[in-house]
Write a protein that binds this DNA or RNA. Structure first.
Length: 741
DNA sequence: TCACAGTAACTC
DNA sequence: AGTTACTGTGAG
């Protein structure tokens, strides 16, 4: 490989001899470089490079001369090292051109880091579109899209890759032709019985698959049904993948977490699509940050080289280079794990939508619940609503009962208990037939503690953080600064004793153990002793789980109890109702159908809309009503909104420069309180009291959807000015902010 | 007069 | 971001 050795030394020399750059005419450039010993590549001597630096005003390409010695290796999409502003920086070679647009002297590329073309033209276009959609930079998005290089993995798989791509031992692939005509994905013939069984119950389901395998680009929002093994959502996705492969195209599946990746991979196995073996071509790879750098890069390369035809992964996998992409699929788009925590915070649902449009791929959004954004896609006519008839829904789902305080009034005092009589009786009855799931909305043990006399929430005397009580603790501890609240006194009334106002999952498990002696109790959750449990056997047991950590029971739970319905469904967040329904449905979908005795009880006073949506198993109806409301209130997703959060002066400066499009407007600034301030407190060392409450404000800017591009463009421009001028303070921008108000 | 810091501008 | 060029003040 002539990439690392002589080429690098030549680069070093060049910089030493480089001229101060007094903007000579283009003809002189070649002569100057030749005098310095650089021979520009005979063909396409100019490289356009994206430098991997964060500042917003650097979000454009820079041109470099390609030395002849690097010409073969310096292909579009490779990682390169370039001299930029007096230092060596990493970058991506975007394009080779004949002539430079830049008037000054071009510096030479210093080094081609590896000949691997990790940035494909498709992913480049996607990353650009995502940056433009989210007021971010290409460099920021590429940081999310392309995993860190792992040289050993690259080296180890190089020979094998060459062998697969070029059976006759040609080690220098011709990238130009490879990009234009990617290797065809050989059609896979799945077992016919499995081809579409999971799609049969849905109106328009078989048609979607047919369209897909015929090479079309249908778009669907699927209301997933609970079902027997082989017909659950992972099977539906696997069968769609099989249909796509049958048409000779590749597949990308993005799910919220690693557990879902495992489920989809298992379903792919049963659908006749095995894991990529590493030696041959075909099969799926899993692409997760959780797997660590080496396996992750290995999977990335397998997809890049067209060896693996299916990629299953978590949010960053939305950018995976799948050759001949025919289908992008996302499971449960309402899960906030689909929002990238790093700037510019793109959402998988939107990334995949941009990608499907750019690459002519089919689009599948599948979930038990329904987000307003998905509903908007349906009502806008962009995607088909693929759902089962009401009769099928009723046959497949458990009976749902809402045990609200009205329902329980005749129970008297016992009705107000956290686990009222009817719920206890339901659990006892269902335990005779199998495991019963108990969903609790919060982890831990007595997570919120209040004054015993006046019921004010107990807060830390030093920093005002919320107090919590761990299971082995007698003294509550501050969740912000960690101090033990010994000798606590209520700031409101001066009383000295505490009580719990919300009860967590650990405590629930204890209480249930006492209420049902002899019944095994298992706890599942990130903070449970056994962690998150994947599956439980079909045997009588109480399974206590926090939301999102519900184990699957292959035979289905005999019943489920969803506790504290009011906790999640009545917050001030815009999507609180939708989120609550999504969590409830996730648990209820694990329960046997009504015909087999499956019953679900929702305990507590949830908001009426979400409660009805669960009882009627109609999340789309709720989403549709929410969408109407958003329309009348001019709220997203009917309008484009961006939240600008940070120190007051900095936010103000950014807002003042905006050239709002017609119909656009500014809301705020308002002081920020609550969770986003906790983040600040955690980051800014100790002594949070002063700094934390220091003027953090939030401004919301909005514009009609048709002006969304203009809004984001002016926002990006203002941020570019901010970074160029090095304005002080902090500013965070989030387009489509999840939490509002 | 030189020194050094604060700052403005640029990076192919 | 990081580097360099260029103002402006200060002590000698």
């Amino acid at each position: 490989m002539p990439v690392d050795g002589p080429a690098q030394e030549q680069g070093e020399q060049l910089t030493l001899l480089d001229l101060p750059a007094p903007a000579p005419a283009k003809g002189r450039r070649a002569r100057a470089l030749a005098r310095d010993g650089v021979h520009p590549a005979a063909e396409l001597p100019v490289a356009r490079v994206c430098v991997a630096l964060p500042p917003a005003h650097l979000d454009r390409s820079f041109e470099y001369v390609v030395p002849a010695a690097m010409s073969d290796a310096a292909q579009p999409g490779t990682r390169v090292k370039v001299r930029f502003g007096g230092q060596d920086v990493d970058g991506y070679l975007l394009e080779r051109t004949e002539h430079a647009e830049h008037d000054g002297t071009l510096a030479p590329l210093r080094r081609v880091v590896s000949p691997e073309q990790v940035l494909t033209p498709e992913v480049h276009a996607l990353a650009r579109a995502v940056a433009d959609r989210y007021a971010g930079t290409l460099a920021d998005v590429l940081r999310l899209a392309i995993p860190a290089r792992h040289a050993r993995v690259e080296g180890a798989t190089m020979a094998a890759a060459a062998a697969v791509d070029e059976p006759h031992g040609e080690t220098t692939p011709s990238p130009a032709t490879a990009a234009e005509t990617p290797p065809a994905v050989p059609p896979v013939e799945p077992a016919p019985a499995l081809l579409s069984s999971a799609w049969q119950p849905y109106r328009g389901g078989p048609a979607f698959l047919q369209h897909l395998s015929a090479g079309g680009a249908p778009r669907a929002v699927l209301s997933a049904l609970p079902g027997p093994a082989g017909e659950r959502w992972p099977d539906a996705i696997a069968q769609a993948a099989a249909a796509c492969l049958a048409g000779g195209r590749g597949v990308l599946v993005v799910v919220p977490d690693a557990r879902d990746v495992v489920r989809v991979c298992a379903a792919l196995d049963t659908a006749g699509i095995g894991p990529w073996s590493g030696t041959s071509s075909g099969g799926y790879v899993r692409l997760l940050a959780d797997d660590g750098p080496a396996p992750r890069y290995r999977a990335f390369l397998a997809a890049l080289r067209g060896q693996a035809h299916v990629v299953v992964g978590t949010r960053a996998a939305a950018f995976a280079p799948v050759s001949r992409l025919g289908l992008v699929a996302c499971w449960d788009d309402g899960d906030d794990l689909h929002v990238e925590p790093r700037t510019p915070h793109p959402h998988v649902r939107e990334v995949l939508a941009l990608r499907a449009a750019q690459q002519g791929a089919a689009y599948l959004l599948a979930a038990h619940g329904r987000t307003v954004e998905a509903q908007a896609m349906v009502e806008r006519g962009w995607a088909h609503d693929v759902a089962a008839d009401r009769a099928v829904v009723r046959a497949r789902t458990p009976q749902v009962r809402a045990l609200t305080s009205v329902e329980l009034a005749r129970e008297g005092a016992a009705g107000a208990a956290r686990l009222p009589g009817p719920a206890t009786r339901l659990i006892r009855e269902r335990l005779a037939h199998g495991p019963v799931l108990v969903q609790v909305p919060r982890a831990g043990y007595l997570p919120v503690v209040a004054c015993d006399r006046c019921r004010a929430v107990a807060r830390c005397g030093a920093c005002h953080g919320a107090l919590a009580l761990g299971s082995a603790q007698a003294v509550p501890q501050c969740q912000w600064c960690g101090r033990l609240a010994t000798g606590w006194q209520c700031a409101e009334c001066g009383a000295g004793s505490l009580r719990s106002v919300r009860v967590g999952s650990d405590r629930t498990a204890e209480e249930l153990g006492r209420a049902f002696p002899g019944v095994p109790v298992r706890s599942s959750g990130a903070r449970a002793a056994a962690g998150v449990i994947a599956t439980v056997p079909d045997a009588p047991a109480l399974v206590v789980a926090t939301t999102g950590a519900e184990p699957v029971c292959e035979a289905g739970y005999a019943g489920a109890v969803l506790l504290d319905a009011g906790v999640g469904s009545m917050s001030t967040s815009l999507s609180a109702g939708e989120d609550a329904v999504r969590r409830w449905l996730a648990a209820a979908a694990l329960v046997r159908p009504h015909g087999e005795g499956g019953v679900v009880a929702l305990v507590g006073d949830g908001a009426p809309g979400p409660t009805q949506a669960l009882v009627r198993w109609d999340p789309a109806g709720l989403a549709s009503r929410d969408l109407v409301e958003r329309q009348t209130l001019a709220l997203p997703p009917v309008v484009r909104v961006a939240a600008i959060t940070g120190t007051r002066d900095a936010v103000q400066a950014v807002v003042d420069r905006l050239e709002l499009p017609p119909g656009g407007g500014v809301l705020g600034p308002v002081p920020v309180t609550g969770s986003s301030q906790i983040g600040v407190a955690r980051r800014s060392t100790r002594a949070p009291a002063q700094e934390t409450l220091d003027a953090e404000v939030r401004v919301l800017v909005r514009a009609p959807l048709a002006e969304g591009h203009a809004l984001v463009r002016t926002l990006a421009a203002s941020l570019a000015v901010r970074s160029a001028r090095r304005e002080g303070g902090t500013v965070r921008v989030q387009v489509d902010p999840a939490e509002m108000l």
